[in-house]
Nucleic acid binder design. Structure first.
Length: 577
DNA sequence: GCCGTTTTCGGCCCGACTGTTTTCAGTCG
């Protein structure tokens, strides 16, 4: 079983235990292990091979009991404990938990009293008004559960960051004009720049919260109000997106941003730290337990500071070692958008882009870049107007002429060359040699098995003219899974051959993803950012690439295109010599 | 079930909203 499957298994255990009203901390332990396994870059099996149970117990949240369970899963492909546990609860009952409004207590009650074991049976019981007869239930609860079922059925996948961010921005603009609203900001996974966002959290500081709530719940883009209180409301807006708005007093704004930015795991760790210092953290501030005195809350920096920690950038707040790093004063100095000196993956109307080389260059200059790599598609990709050898030579000459005309800016002639099924490239080495930069990528034959795909890419890396592998796993978020490729081997091969790996900044891709970028950095691989722009507006997508790099703990030195042009050219030529 | 600059045992994050209650339990984030 793979990491994600094992994680799912532990999640299931947690849910069943919850229905059985087991010790909630035990439930949390299983859930925690699920979360950790999901974000682990190394295969659990490899960890186990390396050092058996002891190595497994190095994984945070894994103790002796769970290590033994993982061992059993790896050895036998199943877990006896889980198989037994499953039989103790009707299978449909766990599914009820996925309905918003229904938690373990309600699920249990529905089963004990009405023998309900599926969503369909629950619907039927509600229509017969049987649920309202149960203790603690009423007509309104029945309505809410029905609405929950409806919500579940039309619930969308998590939104890609590139979709959620503009929606949030729109709401923020609308709230900012309110005279009652002082500061407005998005928090949650959006502020942490996670690649997908479940719902949008917005935070407002105001001394008149009710006025803000009234205005928010009546905005034109809102289609449904789920709940509305004095300081907190939830609504459904464009594309079925849930938006939660929370209002706090200005003197608590910092504590509230910290609290609502999360992640949950990060915050739990912080609060545990606070307890050791006899402090209590909530969304209103940091308080002394004994006296109730408030000692921080206006800014986020204050909150971290009273815990003797430096401020932690939101992109790092995933409980993946950032608190330990902060304690030791070893937080990375994350790359900023202003560190980016140029875009290294750009298409023009020579292939499937919409704008000319000149138009792209002008836009890049206006963004303050020092260089731009023109990397149109290669011949195999006919559908995208891939360049023939002749056309590419022509483009090289054209770029040469343009470079003579401009000052203080360098246009790099490049290509996004297709890696063919056998790992060979679309053009001869003689032609590749004439380019400043060669990006290699896979655009066809996605369905190869892992071994073949990995070899295919590694073979391309061994070509001394290939500088960069573009979108190394080929995923399209929410649409296409990554191709089967051994990412660890790919990273090792990149280190060995002096090839760079791209973080494709296009928000549907973000490929490499955060945790893989981090692994690459740790293995000494240099990464580079490219927007894959097909028009001038796309050059602005660099924002999302930088966010992904930051989530991967990358610093300026870890990225190719933070270098000034001379150093960049030097790096690009290194592999050839 | 995990974990340790209080601890190898006894803790384990915190509050808003809702609906059903007459003071609170359940759910959610």
């Amino acid at each position: 079983m793979k990491n994600l499957e094992i994680a799912d298994l532990f999640y299931n255990i947690a849910e069943i235990l919850e229905i059985k009203e087991e010790n909630p901390f035990r439930v949390r332990s299983y859930r925690k292990v699920g979360q950790v396994l999901e974000t682990l870059t190394e295969d659990v099996f490899k960890i186990y091979e390396r050092g058996c149970l002891a190595a497994l117990q190095e994984i945070p949240g894994v103790g002796e009991a769970i290590a033994r369970k993982i061992e059993e899963i790896l050895k036998t492909g199943r877990l006896e404990y889980y198989e037994k546990l499953k039989t103790s609860v009707p299978p449909g009952l766990v599914a009820l938990l996925s309905i918003p409004e229904i938690g373990p207590k309600t699920a249990r009650l529905l089963y004990d009293r009405l023998k309900i074991t599926s969503i369909e049976e629950l619907e039927k019981a509600i229509k017969e008004h049987k649920v309202r007869e149960l203790p603690g239930m009423g007509a309104k609860t029945e309505d809410n559960i029905l609405r929950g079922i409806d919500l579940l059925r039309r619930r969308k996948e998590r939104l890609p960051l590139g979709v959620a961010q503009p929606i949030a921005q729109g709401i923020i603009e609308a709230l900012k004009v309110l005279p009652e609203a002082e500061q407005v900001i998005y928090a949650g996974s959006l502020r942490r720049m996670k690649e997908t966002v479940g719902d949008i959290d917005i935070l407002v500081s105001s001394t008149k919260p009710e006025a803000v709530m009234d205005a928010f719940t009546t905005l034109p883009q809102i289609t449904e109000v789920l709940s509305k209180g004095k300081t907190k409301s939830s609504v459904i807006a464009e594309k079925g997106t849930q938006i939660d708005v929370r209002v706090v007093e200005p003197q608590s704004f910092g504590a509230a941003i910290q609290y609502f930015t999360g992640s949950k795991e990060h915050n739990i760790k912080l609060r545990e730290l606070a307890i050791h210092k006899e402090l209590k953290i909530n969304e209103y501030g940091v308080f002394r337990v004994k006296t109730g005195e408030k000692i921080a809350g206006r800014t986020e920096e204050e909150v971290y500071s009273v815990l003797d920690l430096p401020w932690v950038p939101p992109e790092l707040r995933e409980d993946r070692g950032e608190i330990e790093a902060a304690k030791a004063n070893r937080l990375p100095i994350l790359i900023e958008i202003s560190d980016i000196k140029g875009d290294l993956h750009v298409h023009t109307n020579w292939s499937d882009g919409t704008h000319t080389i000149t138009e792209m260059v002008e836009r890049a200059e206006r963004k303050g870049y020092q260089y731009l790599a023109i990397t149109d598609h290669s011949y195999s990709l006919r559908i995208a107007g891939g360049l023939s050898e002749e056309r590419l030579k022509e483009q090289i000459r054209e770029i040469g002429k343009l470079n003579e005309k401009i000052d203080k800016f360098e246009i790099l002639s490049g290509i996004e060359v297709d890696i063919k099924r056998d790992g060979s490239l679309d053009y001869s080495d003689d032609l590749l040699k004439q380019l400043d930069i060669v990006i290699a990528a896979i655009h066809s034959g996605f369905k190869m098995d892992m071994e073949a795909m990995t070899l295919r890419i590694i073979k391309a890396m061994r070509n001394k003219y290939v500088n960069i592998i573009a979108h190394p796993t080929g995923r399209i978020i929410g649409e296409r899974d990554p191709y089967q490729v051994d990412i660890e081997q790919q990273i090792m091969a990149a280190a060995e051959t002096g090839t760079f790996l791209e973080i494709n900044a296009f928000p549907d891709r973000l490929d490499l993803k955060d945790i893989h970028a981090q692994t690459a950095k740790e293995k000494g691989v240099l990464l580079c950012l490219g927007t894959d722009a097909h028009n001038i507006m796309h050059l602005d997508l660099m924002f999302y690439g930088v966010a992904t790099a930051r989530r991967g703990w990358l610093e300026r030195k870890d990225l190719l295109n933070t270098l000034p042009v001379e150093k960049l050219m030097e790096k690009l030529r290194q592999k050839r010599s």
